[in-house]
């Protein structure tokens, strides 16, 4: 299928790839893992502390969880606006992406970024540019699971 020239080109590309793989610095996985673990763990612990506080005041677990999510989202939004969340993210990596605060950061960062293109087609249209796909997939799976349950029962 391949002409000799194409084959030579493929071999050249492969050699180049090998060269790059030797030269390219690898991320410092151990350090990144420690940062992700500590920061992600602390964010979740803060959430648990709020939930426990609300539970002890007699609020139901479901409401306490929802309220906690809202507070964490608010804090993430605020710190994104102040420019701190982005700096935390440089170090914490997944530790500040995986928690719901990372979802909030993606939304706020997109909204802020497009402010200068106006509030409707800038902020409004772009607010979900990064976080939108998560909702799409979340909704689709949830509905699929629901449909399966309907047809199984």
């Amino acid at each position: 299928m391949h002409t000799p020239e194409q084959k030579i080109k493929e071999i050249e590309k492969q050699e180049y790839e090998d060269l790059i793989n030797q030269a390219k610095p690898k991320p410092n996985l151990a350090r990144n893992m420690v940062w992700a673990f500590v920061v992600g763990g602390l964010i979740c612990m803060l959430g648990q502390w709020m939930i426990n506080l609300m539970l002890s005041r007699g609020i139901s677990l479901a409401d306490a969880s929802s309220a906690t999510s809202c507070i964490l989202i608010f804090l993430a939004a605020l710190f994104t606006g102040l420019g701190y969340y982005n700096e935390l993210g440089q170090r914490a990596g997944a530790g500040s992406i995986v928690p719901i605060t990372g979802f909030a950061n993606a939304i706020v960062a997109s909204a802020l970024e497009y402010k200068r293109e106006g509030y409707i087609f800038g902020v409004g249209a772009r607010i979900f540019s990064v976080a939108g796909p998560t909702l799409v997939f979340g909704f689709v799976i949830a509905v699929l699971v629901g449909l399966i349950r309907v047809f199984l029962s």
Binding site: M33, A36, F37, G41, C44, M45, N52, S56, P99
Partner: peptide
């Protein structure tokens, strides 16, 4: 009530998994 340290451990581990996925597939 779930103790705080359990939230820390489970949450931290979930984040570490994400970090490994990102760094391994960069």
């Amino acid at each position: 009530m779930v103790p705080l340290y359990m939230a820390f451990l489970v949450g931290g581990l979930l984040c570490v998994i994400g970090q490994i996925i990102m760094d391994a597939t960069k």
